[in-house]
Design a binder for these strands. Structure first.
Lengths: 164, 164
DNA sequence: AATGAAAGAGTCGGCTT
DNA sequence: AAGCCGACTCTTTCATT
Protein backbone atom coordinates (compact mmCIF):
# COMPACT_ATOMS: atom_id res chain seq x y z
CA UNK A 1 0.00 0.00 0.00
CA UNK A 2 0.83 3.60 -0.26
CA UNK A 3 3.25 5.03 2.20
CA UNK A 4 3.37 8.73 1.51
CA UNK A 5 6.50 10.62 2.41
CA UNK A 6 6.93 14.34 2.70
CA UNK A 7 7.73 14.83 -0.98
CA UNK A 8 4.62 12.92 -2.00
CA UNK A 9 2.44 15.14 0.16
CA UNK A 10 4.07 18.20 -1.30
CA UNK A 11 3.41 16.99 -4.82
CA UNK A 12 -0.19 16.17 -4.00
CA UNK A 13 -0.73 19.62 -2.55
CA UNK A 14 0.70 21.29 -5.61
CA UNK A 15 -1.29 19.12 -7.98
CA UNK A 16 -4.45 19.76 -6.06
CA UNK A 17 -3.88 23.48 -6.44
CA UNK A 18 -2.89 23.21 -10.10
CA UNK A 19 -3.62 19.94 -11.81
CA UNK A 20 -1.82 21.08 -14.92
CA UNK A 21 1.39 22.04 -13.24
CA UNK A 22 4.27 20.85 -15.36
CA UNK A 23 6.62 18.26 -14.04
CA UNK A 24 9.45 20.74 -14.38
CA UNK A 25 7.72 23.19 -12.05
CA UNK A 26 6.93 20.40 -9.61
CA UNK A 27 10.51 19.18 -9.72
CA UNK A 28 11.81 22.63 -8.94
CA UNK A 29 9.32 23.05 -6.10
CA UNK A 30 10.24 19.81 -4.36
CA UNK A 31 13.93 19.92 -5.17
CA UNK A 32 14.07 16.78 -7.27
CA UNK A 33 14.61 16.16 -10.95
CA UNK A 34 11.99 15.68 -13.60
CA UNK A 35 12.08 11.92 -13.99
CA UNK A 36 11.94 11.37 -10.24
CA UNK A 37 8.84 13.49 -10.01
CA UNK A 38 7.43 11.66 -13.01
CA UNK A 39 7.97 8.28 -11.36
CA UNK A 40 6.37 9.43 -8.13
CA UNK A 41 3.30 10.81 -9.87
CA UNK A 42 2.89 7.65 -11.91
CA UNK A 43 3.13 5.65 -8.72
CA UNK A 44 0.55 7.82 -6.97
CA UNK A 45 -1.77 7.49 -9.94
CA UNK A 46 -1.48 3.73 -10.16
CA UNK A 47 -1.92 3.37 -6.41
CA UNK A 48 -5.13 5.35 -6.66
CA UNK A 49 -4.02 8.22 -4.44
CA UNK A 50 -4.46 10.48 -7.45
CA UNK A 51 -7.79 9.46 -8.85
CA UNK A 52 -7.76 11.77 -11.80
CA UNK A 53 -7.66 15.37 -12.93
CA UNK A 54 -10.48 17.76 -13.51
CA UNK A 55 -11.14 21.25 -14.81
CA UNK A 56 -12.84 23.52 -12.29
CA UNK A 57 -15.73 25.25 -14.02
CA UNK A 58 -17.63 28.36 -12.97
CA UNK A 59 -21.21 27.32 -12.25
CA UNK A 60 -22.60 30.77 -13.05
CA UNK A 61 -21.23 30.56 -16.58
CA UNK A 62 -23.24 27.42 -17.09
CA UNK A 63 -26.52 28.84 -15.94
CA UNK A 64 -26.50 27.06 -12.62
CA UNK A 65 -26.89 29.72 -10.01
CA UNK A 66 -28.89 28.02 -7.27
CA UNK A 67 -27.41 25.57 -4.81
CA UNK A 68 -29.42 23.76 -2.17
CA UNK A 69 -29.06 21.01 0.38
CA UNK A 70 -31.96 18.61 0.69
CA UNK A 71 -32.36 16.28 3.63
CA UNK A 72 -34.34 13.25 2.61
CA UNK A 73 -36.10 10.79 4.86
CA UNK A 74 -36.90 7.35 3.46
CA UNK A 75 -38.59 4.19 4.64
CA UNK A 76 -36.37 1.65 6.32
CA UNK A 77 -36.80 -1.20 3.86
CA UNK A 78 -33.73 -1.50 1.65
CA UNK A 79 -35.79 -2.44 -1.40
CA UNK A 80 -37.40 0.95 -1.35
CA UNK A 81 -34.13 2.85 -1.47
CA UNK A 82 -33.09 1.68 -4.91
CA UNK A 83 -35.39 4.02 -6.81
CA UNK A 84 -34.04 6.95 -4.87
CA UNK A 85 -30.38 6.11 -5.33
CA UNK A 86 -30.98 5.34 -8.95
CA UNK A 87 -32.61 8.73 -9.38
CA UNK A 88 -29.78 10.73 -7.83
CA UNK A 89 -27.24 8.84 -9.92
CA UNK A 90 -29.02 9.82 -13.10
CA UNK A 91 -29.98 13.36 -12.24
CA UNK A 92 -27.53 15.94 -13.51
CA UNK A 93 -28.69 18.41 -10.88
CA UNK A 94 -27.49 16.22 -8.02
CA UNK A 95 -23.90 17.02 -7.16
CA UNK A 96 -23.65 14.90 -4.04
CA UNK A 97 -25.72 12.35 -2.21
CA UNK A 98 -24.67 10.85 1.11
CA UNK A 99 -26.27 8.21 3.24
CA UNK A 100 -26.12 9.60 6.77
CA UNK A 101 -26.96 8.54 10.27
CA UNK A 102 -29.27 10.45 12.53
CA UNK A 103 -32.73 11.64 11.86
CA UNK A 104 -32.39 11.91 8.08
CA UNK A 105 -31.59 9.16 5.60
CA UNK A 106 -29.74 11.18 2.98
CA UNK A 107 -28.12 14.55 2.54
CA UNK A 108 -28.33 15.68 -1.09
CA UNK A 109 -26.54 18.65 -2.62
CA UNK A 110 -28.06 19.97 -5.82
CA UNK A 111 -27.34 22.74 -8.27
CA UNK A 112 -30.04 24.08 -10.55
CA UNK A 113 -30.62 27.12 -12.70
CA UNK A 114 -33.70 28.52 -11.06
CA UNK A 115 -36.16 28.14 -8.18
CA UNK A 116 -38.59 26.60 -10.66
CA UNK A 117 -36.12 23.83 -11.42
CA UNK A 118 -35.68 23.24 -7.73
CA UNK A 119 -39.41 22.94 -7.32
CA UNK A 120 -39.56 20.33 -10.07
CA UNK A 121 -36.62 18.49 -8.56
CA UNK A 122 -38.22 18.37 -5.13
CA UNK A 123 -41.49 17.16 -6.60
CA UNK A 124 -39.66 14.38 -8.41
CA UNK A 125 -37.80 13.33 -5.30
CA UNK A 126 -40.94 13.33 -3.17
CA UNK A 127 -42.71 11.23 -5.78
CA UNK A 128 -40.09 8.48 -5.57
CA UNK A 129 -41.19 5.32 -3.78
CA UNK A 130 -39.71 5.11 -0.29
CA UNK A 131 -39.25 8.85 0.17
CA UNK A 132 -41.21 10.03 3.18
CA UNK A 133 -39.90 13.53 3.82
CA UNK A 134 -37.70 16.30 2.42
CA UNK A 135 -36.29 19.39 4.07
CA UNK A 136 -34.58 21.94 1.85
CA UNK A 137 -31.99 24.59 2.66
CA UNK A 138 -31.25 27.04 -0.10
CA UNK A 139 -27.70 28.38 -0.15
CA UNK A 140 -27.69 32.16 0.21
CA UNK A 141 -23.95 32.56 0.25
CA UNK A 142 -21.03 30.16 0.11
CA UNK A 143 -18.49 31.01 2.78
CA UNK A 144 -16.04 28.29 1.82
CA UNK A 145 -15.84 25.57 -0.80
CA UNK A 146 -12.86 23.34 -1.40
CA UNK A 147 -13.14 21.41 -4.62
CA UNK A 148 -10.59 18.69 -4.10
CA UNK A 149 -12.62 16.81 -1.56
CA UNK A 150 -9.52 16.26 0.51
CA UNK A 151 -7.52 18.89 2.26
CA UNK A 152 -3.79 18.79 2.60
CA UNK A 153 -2.59 22.22 3.52
CA UNK A 154 -3.39 22.50 7.19
CA UNK A 155 -2.03 25.54 8.97
CA UNK A 156 -4.15 25.08 12.03
CA UNK A 157 -3.44 21.65 13.49
CA UNK A 158 -3.07 21.94 17.25
CA UNK A 159 -0.10 20.00 18.49
CA UNK A 160 1.28 19.15 15.05
CA UNK A 161 4.83 19.81 14.04
CA UNK A 162 5.77 22.37 11.44
CA UNK A 163 7.03 21.32 8.03
CA UNK A 164 10.57 20.32 7.24
CA UNK B 1 -19.40 38.01 -21.96
CA UNK B 2 -19.13 34.37 -22.61
CA UNK B 3 -21.39 32.93 -25.22
CA UNK B 4 -20.83 29.20 -25.10
CA UNK B 5 -21.54 27.26 -28.25
CA UNK B 6 -21.86 23.54 -28.63
CA UNK B 7 -18.15 22.96 -29.12
CA UNK B 8 -17.33 24.92 -25.97
CA UNK B 9 -19.70 22.79 -23.93
CA UNK B 10 -18.16 19.67 -25.39
CA UNK B 11 -14.68 20.82 -24.48
CA UNK B 12 -15.76 21.73 -20.97
CA UNK B 13 -17.33 18.33 -20.50
CA UNK B 14 -14.20 16.57 -21.65
CA UNK B 15 -11.95 18.73 -19.51
CA UNK B 16 -14.11 18.21 -16.49
CA UNK B 17 -13.79 14.47 -16.94
CA UNK B 18 -10.07 14.63 -17.63
CA UNK B 19 -8.35 17.89 -16.86
CA UNK B 20 -5.15 16.62 -18.41
CA UNK B 21 -6.63 15.61 -21.70
CA UNK B 22 -4.24 16.65 -24.44
CA UNK B 23 -5.28 19.26 -26.92
CA UNK B 24 -4.75 16.72 -29.67
CA UNK B 25 -7.29 14.38 -28.10
CA UNK B 26 -9.72 17.24 -27.56
CA UNK B 27 -9.30 18.38 -31.15
CA UNK B 28 -10.05 14.92 -32.43
CA UNK B 29 -13.08 14.62 -30.17
CA UNK B 30 -14.69 17.87 -31.28
CA UNK B 31 -13.62 17.67 -34.89
CA UNK B 32 -11.44 20.78 -34.93
CA UNK B 33 -7.74 21.35 -35.22
CA UNK B 34 -5.24 21.78 -32.43
CA UNK B 35 -4.80 25.56 -32.59
CA UNK B 36 -8.55 26.15 -32.71
CA UNK B 37 -9.02 24.10 -29.59
CA UNK B 38 -6.12 25.92 -28.00
CA UNK B 39 -7.68 29.31 -28.76
CA UNK B 40 -11.03 28.24 -27.35
CA UNK B 41 -9.56 26.90 -24.14
CA UNK B 42 -7.50 30.02 -23.62
CA UNK B 43 -10.62 32.11 -24.16
CA UNK B 44 -12.60 30.01 -21.69
CA UNK B 45 -9.81 30.33 -19.14
CA UNK B 46 -9.49 34.09 -19.50
CA UNK B 47 -13.25 34.53 -19.34
CA UNK B 48 -13.28 32.63 -16.07
CA UNK B 49 -15.45 29.78 -17.28
CA UNK B 50 -12.54 27.46 -16.57
CA UNK B 51 -11.35 28.56 -13.15
CA UNK B 52 -8.48 26.16 -12.91
CA UNK B 53 -7.43 22.55 -12.84
CA UNK B 54 -7.11 20.19 -9.94
CA UNK B 55 -5.96 16.70 -9.12
CA UNK B 56 -8.64 14.53 -7.55
CA UNK B 57 -7.17 12.82 -4.49
CA UNK B 58 -8.42 9.79 -2.62
CA UNK B 59 -9.35 10.92 0.89
CA UNK B 60 -8.75 7.49 2.40
CA UNK B 61 -5.13 7.58 1.29
CA UNK B 62 -4.67 10.74 3.28
CA UNK B 63 -6.06 9.41 6.52
CA UNK B 64 -9.32 11.28 6.24
CA UNK B 65 -12.01 8.69 6.46
CA UNK B 66 -14.84 10.44 8.23
CA UNK B 67 -17.13 12.93 6.51
CA UNK B 68 -19.95 14.74 8.27
CA UNK B 69 -22.45 17.50 7.67
CA UNK B 70 -23.02 19.90 10.53
CA UNK B 71 -25.98 22.23 10.62
CA UNK B 72 -25.15 25.26 12.69
CA UNK B 73 -27.56 27.72 14.25
CA UNK B 74 -26.24 31.16 15.19
CA UNK B 75 -27.58 34.31 16.76
CA UNK B 76 -29.06 36.85 14.41
CA UNK B 77 -26.64 39.69 15.09
CA UNK B 78 -24.11 40.02 12.26
CA UNK B 79 -21.29 40.94 14.61
CA UNK B 80 -21.51 37.55 16.19
CA UNK B 81 -21.07 35.66 12.92
CA UNK B 82 -17.58 36.82 12.22
CA UNK B 83 -15.87 34.47 14.68
CA UNK B 84 -17.68 31.53 13.13
CA UNK B 85 -16.87 32.38 9.54
CA UNK B 86 -13.32 33.13 10.48
CA UNK B 87 -13.04 29.75 12.14
CA UNK B 88 -14.32 27.76 9.16
CA UNK B 89 -12.00 29.64 6.83
CA UNK B 90 -9.02 28.65 8.92
CA UNK B 91 -9.94 25.08 9.77
CA UNK B 92 -8.45 22.53 7.43
CA UNK B 93 -11.19 20.07 8.35
CA UNK B 94 -13.92 22.26 6.88
CA UNK B 95 -14.44 21.47 3.22
CA UNK B 96 -17.51 23.58 2.68
CA UNK B 97 -19.54 26.15 4.57
CA UNK B 98 -22.72 27.64 3.21
CA UNK B 99 -25.00 30.30 4.60
CA UNK B 100 -28.51 28.92 4.12
CA UNK B 101 -32.07 29.99 4.62
CA UNK B 102 -34.54 28.07 6.71
CA UNK B 103 -34.21 26.88 10.23
CA UNK B 104 -30.41 26.62 10.24
CA UNK B 105 -27.87 29.36 9.68
CA UNK B 106 -25.08 27.33 8.08
CA UNK B 107 -24.48 23.95 6.51
CA UNK B 108 -20.91 22.83 7.07
CA UNK B 109 -19.21 19.85 5.43
CA UNK B 110 -16.18 18.52 7.26
CA UNK B 111 -13.68 15.75 6.75
CA UNK B 112 -11.67 14.38 9.66
CA UNK B 113 -9.58 11.35 10.43
CA UNK B 114 -11.51 9.96 13.36
CA UNK B 115 -14.60 10.36 15.54
CA UNK B 116 -12.37 11.91 18.19
CA UNK B 117 -11.37 14.66 15.79
CA UNK B 118 -15.01 15.26 15.00
CA UNK B 119 -15.76 15.55 18.69
CA UNK B 120 -13.03 18.14 19.10
CA UNK B 121 -14.25 20.00 16.03
CA UNK B 122 -17.82 20.13 17.32
CA UNK B 123 -16.67 21.33 20.69
CA UNK B 124 -14.68 24.11 19.06
CA UNK B 125 -17.61 25.17 16.92
CA UNK B 126 -20.01 25.16 19.84
CA UNK B 127 -17.60 27.26 21.86
CA UNK B 128 -17.56 30.01 19.23
CA UNK B 129 -19.44 33.17 20.14
CA UNK B 130 -22.77 33.39 18.36
CA UNK B 131 -23.19 29.65 17.85
CA UNK B 132 -26.36 28.48 19.50
CA UNK B 133 -26.88 24.98 18.14
CA UNK B 134 -25.28 22.22 16.08
CA UNK B 135 -26.80 19.12 14.52
CA UNK B 136 -24.42 16.57 13.02
CA UNK B 137 -24.99 13.93 10.37
CA UNK B 138 -22.18 11.46 9.89
CA UNK B 139 -21.81 10.12 6.36
CA UNK B 140 -22.17 6.35 6.32
CA UNK B 141 -21.85 5.93 2.60
CA UNK B 142 -21.42 8.32 -0.30
CA UNK B 143 -23.85 7.47 -3.06
CA UNK B 144 -22.67 10.20 -5.43
CA UNK B 145 -20.04 12.91 -5.37
CA UNK B 146 -19.19 15.16 -8.28
CA UNK B 147 -16.04 17.15 -7.69
CA UNK B 148 -16.31 19.81 -10.34
CA UNK B 149 -19.10 21.67 -8.67
CA UNK B 150 -20.90 22.01 -11.96
CA UNK B 151 -22.42 19.28 -14.02
CA UNK B 152 -22.23 19.10 -17.75
CA UNK B 153 -22.05 15.49 -18.78
CA UNK B 154 -25.57 14.29 -18.81
CA UNK B 155 -26.08 11.01 -20.60
CA UNK B 156 -29.69 11.31 -19.44
CA UNK B 157 -30.48 7.80 -20.57
CA UNK B 158 -33.09 6.46 -18.16
CA UNK B 159 -32.09 3.02 -17.06
CA UNK B 160 -28.47 3.36 -18.10
CA UNK B 161 -25.99 1.14 -16.35
CA UNK B 162 -22.88 2.26 -14.54
CA UNK B 163 -19.37 1.62 -15.70
CA UNK B 164 -16.76 -0.55 -14.00
C1' DA C 1 17.51 9.41 -8.23
C1' DA C 2 20.09 12.18 -11.89
C1' DT C 3 21.50 12.81 -16.73
C1' DG C 4 20.69 13.11 -21.60
C1' DA C 5 18.14 12.05 -25.71
C1' DA C 6 14.03 11.05 -28.51
C1' DA C 7 9.12 11.48 -29.06
C1' DG C 8 5.19 14.10 -28.50
C1' DA C 9 2.42 18.10 -27.14
C1' DG C 10 1.74 23.04 -26.51
C1' DT C 11 2.36 27.56 -28.49
C1' DC C 12 2.68 31.19 -31.80
C1' DG C 13 3.15 33.27 -36.17
C1' DG C 14 1.04 33.69 -40.76
C1' DC C 15 -2.15 32.13 -44.34
C1' DT C 16 -6.86 30.76 -46.05
C1' DT C 17 -11.78 30.67 -46.24
C1' DA D 1 -13.60 36.69 -37.71
C1' DA D 2 -12.55 31.98 -37.12
C1' DG D 3 -10.17 27.93 -38.39
C1' DC D 4 -6.12 25.48 -40.45
C1' DC D 5 -1.12 24.89 -41.49
C1' DG D 6 3.57 24.55 -40.27
C1' DA D 7 7.56 25.72 -37.44
C1' DC D 8 9.55 26.36 -32.87
C1' DT D 9 9.77 25.46 -27.86
C1' DC D 10 8.94 23.01 -23.97
C1' DT D 11 7.35 18.81 -21.65
C1' DT D 12 6.94 14.27 -21.10
C1' DT D 13 9.04 9.83 -21.35
C1' DC D 14 12.58 6.33 -21.41
C1' DA D 15 17.35 4.20 -21.41
C1' DT D 16 21.45 4.57 -19.07
C1' DT D 17 24.80 5.55 -15.26
Amino acid sequence: MAQLDDVDLRLLTLLQEDGRSTQAALAKAVGLSGPSVYARIKRLESEGVIQGYSAILAPESLGQALVAFIRVGTMASPDEQEPFESYVERSGAVLECHDVDGEDSYVVKVRVGSPQELRVLLAEIRALPGVSRTVSSIVLQTVKEIRGGAHLAEPSAPGSKSEA
